[in-house]
Structure formats: C-alpha cells, structure tokens
Amino acid sequence: MTSLASASVTKVPHISHAVLRVSGPDKKGVIAAFTQVLSGHGCNILSSEQHTDTASSRFFQRSAFDISTMLTDKVTLSNGISEVAKRLNMKAEITWPPLRKKVAIFVSKYEHCFWELLLRHRAGELPCDIVCVISNHPDLASITQMFGIRYEVFKITKDTKAEQETKEIELLNSLNVDLIVLARYMQIVSDNFCSTFPHRIINIHHSFLPAFIGSKPYHRAFERGVKLIGATAHYATADLDEGPIIEQDVKRINHKDSVEDLIAKGRILEKEVLVRAVKKHLQEELIVEGNKCIVFGD
C-alpha cells in the first residue's frame, strides 16, 4: 500500500430531518399506522412516497420527517416504530441525521466517472464526504491530490489479491466508510469483499451485458450493428454484474456513429448514471428487495 495524499473532509452541515424506510406484506392501515407513530411523537412529515408491488403483494414506503419538533427522544421513537413494524410483520429502518455518508472511490486508469464524482461533489451535488480513493494503479493520484483527498495504491495480482483486499477492508473499516463506489475499477472484487459491505458497493458498466462480455464491448457492438447503447449502475454482489440495479440509461445510435463515437457516448452515459445512482443511495431513496431496487424520488 502506498499513500500519496492526506484526507480532506468537508464540514457537515446541520440537518434536522430523518428518513424512515418500510417494507413488508401489503395490508390495510400500514400508512396510517406509521404516520400516527411519527405524528404522535411530534415529528412533522416532510415527504412520503409509497409503492405496492401487486405481483408479490409487497408494500414499500419512504418518509422524510423533521426531528426538530420531536417531543421524545430517538430511542423512544425507534421503539414505537419497531412495535408497529413487528405487529404488521414489516421491516422498518430509520436513518438519523446527519445523513451525510463517508465514501471511498475505487479507480484504475479510466478518468471520466472519477472526474464526474469529484466535480459533482465539489459543486455540492453529492451530500457526502469522500474520505479516500483506492486504486490498483498510481495513474490518477495527481487528479486526487488536486482535490486534497487521500489516495492509496494496492497493487493487486492473482497471488496477492486476498492479502491486498484484506488490507483494503481494514482501511475502509478504520475510516468508517459507508459507501464504496467502483468508478470503472478494473478489478473483480471478491465474494468476501461484497459480503463485508452488503448493498454498500455501487458499480457502473455498459448495458450490453450479458452480451459482449469481456474486453472491447463497444467494438463488438459496432460490428453487430446495435442501435442502442447504455449504462447500468448496480450494487455489487457475489454474482458479479447481476446485483440489484439502481439506475440505467440508454442512447440511440445509428450507422453514422463510429466505434469512437460509441465509446464517447457510452462514457457520458456511464458517468451520468453513476452519479444518479450514488445520489439515490446517499439520500436514502432505495429499498433493496431480493435482487431488485425500489427507487423513490423519480
């Protein structure tokens, strides 16, 4: 491991709202039950979204509520929510302020997604603290240093992968990292790594999968004459690129587009889709259900 810069953490602003996410079997009175608990504790509900999956009869809800007017403490409210959830056989999770998370970005040599994350973060569009950048190459260290962020190099080979990943996990845990973003990180993370951070690793790739697996997918897509290119952001799991999908987008192309055009347009999609997915996670707008994501706020 090679350290090339020191950490820089943005000051966390005061935030007075919390987020309640609920999921479970759909039944009458669910919305009213949780609303009554919040209002009974003096919490003003700022926004609330619900969704019912009619195929599975599953109910999902996300509510943001103001805690500055709360009449009790967090423990008392949490206990009240837990009692209602248990009675209704629901899963309920409260995220208390500050909602700002600590983020680590994994990179290799591709710059486009990395630049986009750093610039959007600097502009205040991503409510998080980027506490470190981890790479298997030193190439992007100079970019990271421009933003005053810690940069660590873990040189991974087939023989050193397990050992290096263990060191990465130790570093991430020591920094209390909440979210890991694979910004075109060209290494397969292990099952152990994914299980250590369940639904806390976001990956980005082109949307040709399961077709055109491997290197030079845009070249093979060009040869095949595809009419759409796209990008997919998802949670990384042991099943490689088959984790719950958070965000996707596509763009039409035609015979006038060269391979270079496809790559350029694909990179634009990749960085935009990745930023949207990261933002959804940071704002607690996702509920993972099996191998799919319920995405609120759209």
Rank of each mutant, 00 (worst) to 15 (best):
residue 171 L to A: 09
residue 171 L to H: 10
residue 171 L to D: 12
residue 171 L to F: 12
residue 171 L to V: 10
residue 171 L to R: 14
residue 171 L to Y: 12
residue 172 L to G: 08
residue 172 L to I: 11
residue 172 L to S: 11
residue 172 L to F: 11
residue 172 L to N: 08
residue 172 L to C: 12
residue 173 N to A: 11
residue 174 S to H: 11
residue 174 S to R: 13
residue 174 S to K: 12
residue 174 S to F: 08
residue 174 S to M: 10
residue 175 L to F: 08
residue 175 L to A: 10
residue 176 N to S: 15
residue 176 N to I: 00
residue 176 N to R: 11
residue 176 N to H: 14
residue 177 V to F: 10
residue 178 D to G: 12
residue 178 D to P: 05
residue 178 D to N: 15
residue 179 L to M: 06
residue 179 L to Y: 01
residue 179 L to C: 04
residue 179 L to D: 01
residue 180 I to K: 05
residue 180 I to N: 14
residue 180 I to F: 06
residue 181 V to C: 05
residue 181 V to I: 15
residue 181 V to F: 02
residue 181 V to Q: 05
residue 182 L to I: 01
residue 182 L to Q: 05
residue 182 L to T: 01
residue 182 L to F: 01
residue 183 A to S: 15
residue 183 A to D: 02
residue 183 A to P: 00
residue 184 R to N: 05
residue 184 R to P: 00
residue 185 Y to G: 06
residue 185 Y to A: 03
residue 185 Y to R: 01
residue 185 Y to S: 07
residue 185 Y to I: 01
residue 186 M to C: 06
residue 187 Q to W: 05
residue 187 Q to A: 07
residue 188 I to H: 00
residue 188 I to D: 00
residue 188 I to Q: 10
residue 189 V to Q: 04
residue 189 V to W: 01
residue 190 S to T: 15
residue 190 S to F: 09
residue 190 S to A: 12
residue 191 D to Y: 05
residue 191 D to A: 12
residue 192 N to V: 12
residue 192 N to Y: 12
residue 193 F to N: 05
residue 193 F to W: 07
residue 193 F to S: 04
residue 194 C to I: 02
residue 194 C to K: 03
residue 194 C to E: 00
residue 195 S to A: 13
residue 195 S to E: 14
residue 195 S to F: 07
residue 195 S to G: 00
residue 195 S to C: 08
residue 196 T to V: 13
residue 196 T to W: 02
residue 196 T to D: 07
residue 197 F to Y: 14
residue 197 F to A: 04
residue 197 F to Q: 04
residue 198 P to Q: 03
residue 198 P to K: 08
residue 198 P to S: 07
residue 198 P to V: 04
residue 198 P to T: 03
residue 198 P to W: 06
residue 198 P to D: 06
residue 199 H to E: 14
residue 199 H to V: 00
residue 201 I to Y: 04
residue 201 I to K: 04
residue 201 I to T: 06
residue 201 I to Q: 04
residue 201 I to L: 11
residue 201 I to C: 08
residue 202 I to G: 09
residue 202 I to R: 10
residue 202 I to V: 15
residue 203 N to H: 08
residue 203 N to A: 06
residue 203 N to Q: 06
residue 204 I to L: 11
residue 204 I to W: 11
residue 204 I to D: 09
residue 204 I to Q: 11
residue 204 I to T: 10
residue 205 H to D: 07
residue 205 H to M: 08
residue 206 H to V: 12
residue 206 H to Y: 12
residue 207 S to W: 03
residue 207 S to P: 05
residue 207 S to E: 13
residue 207 S to H: 14
residue 207 S to K: 12
